[in-house]
């Protein structure tokens, strides 16, 4: 019985929502493709942020930990790929993969002592990590070129095949995001993912079942860092330019918003959140100088009426626990 039954049952409601989302996103992409121009860039960045958020979701959503410093690993990805490509003439894909490897080692080194902390202390420690990285990217001019940043970063490509067309860039980024989501979904429902989600609910309960808490937290942190690094590299190859501001505090705020708007701890939430939170400023642009207020209001409405994020729209209409249970 069992595994097949339970997973297929889950896929029932989940699959319907995924199908509706897919149709909606496909229509959106069609519009963006036809329209082109600025919207195309907005969607490209949404895909990149989506990759970042899918990774962040491993640590914050599945494992239930707080990290305000994932921008540090995006910076490693961005600068790593920029330096390797511009200064050493590496192939973009090789530079991207090498940067991910550097980010994974850095996250292991940083995560091992940091993840002994919990709650607010962990949040503050990771926040410091982001600040330190930002300062390094400004001050270490011999490596990062400071505020000047790196220009002339080549677009993604393998050998002679270079993704220069903006529409093709979007298709590639979307494919990468879909692959990230697929991987995230697979891992979430694996033994590893169940252990992460158990930690998120109760560390003591998870440990009592034999789960090594520190090991799993570190693994989730490293995965999030690798995703962040990939997002940083993708940004560099897509825009062709990076500077310290790209990986600053703004990135932390934006990605948090995306994660919570989409649905923290869900598979599709990070991607949905990235797309919606990227498009929302464009949608409310008509409000003129009240644009920021309109944006904030829209976010508030979303978070009040869908506190668990847009991806929980799939749960609307389902019976609530109190209605299903009852009695002793």
């Amino acid at each position: 019985m069992t595994l097949r039954v339970s997973i297929s049952t889950r896929l029932g409601s989940y699959g319907t929502f995924a199908a509706i989302s897919a149709v909606g996103i496909a229509l959106l992409f069609a519009l963006v493709f036809i329209q082109g121009g600025y919207l195309l860039t907005v969607m490209q960045l949404a895909m990149i942020y989506g990759v970042f958020c899918v990774g962040l979701n491993f640590f914050m959503g599945y494992t239930g930990q707080a990290s305000f410093g994932q921008n540090a690993f995006a910076a490693i990805g961005g600068y790593g790929t920029a330096i390797l490509c511009v200064q050493f003439g590496w192939e973009p894909v090789a530079a991207l993969v090498a940067s991910m490897a550097i980010a994974s080692v850095a996250s292991l080194v940083v995560g091992y002592p940091t993840l002994r902390l919990r709650g607010h202390y962990l949040a503050m420690a990771t926040f410091a990590l982001g600040l330190i990285t930002y300062d390094l990217s400004v001050q270490w001019t011999s490596l990062t070129q400071g505020y000047m940043g790196y220009a002339g970063i080549p677009p993604l490509g393998i050998g002679r095949f270079v993704v220069e067309d903006e529409r093709l860039k979007l298709v590639c980024l979307m494919a990468i995001l879909l692959f990230s989501l697929w991987l995230s979904g697979r891992l979430r429902n694996s033994r590893f993912g169940r252990a992460l989600r158990a930690i998120s609910t109760s560390e003591a309960g998870a440990a009592a079942l034999g789960i090594r808490i520190s090991q799993y937290k570190l693994a989730a942190f490293v995965i999030a860092a690798v995703y962040a690094s990939a997002a940083g590299s993708l940004f560099a190859h897509t825009v062709g330019f990076i500077s310290p501001e790209v990986f600053g505090l703004q990135m932390v705020v934006v990605t948090f918003t995306m994660l919570y708007v989409g649905g923290v701890g869900t598979v599709l939430g990070p991607a949905i959140g990235a797309i919606i939170a990227s498009l929302l400023p464009e949608i409310v642009r008509g409000a003129g100088r009240f644009q920021d207020i309109a944006y904030a209001l829209a976010l508030l409405v979303l978070l009040i009426y869908l506190p668990k994020g847009l991806s929980t729209l799939a749960d609307l209409g389902k019976r609530r626990p109190a209605e299903q249970g009852g009695g002793n």
Binding site: T2, L3, V5, S6, R10, R191, R194, A195, R197, A198, T201, S202, G205, A206, L209, G210, I211
Partner: peptide
Amino acid sequence: FGEMTVYENLLLGAY
């Protein structure tokens, strides 16, 4: 683990 299914809870028991 309240948000997980019965099956997932049992699987975690067998971790």
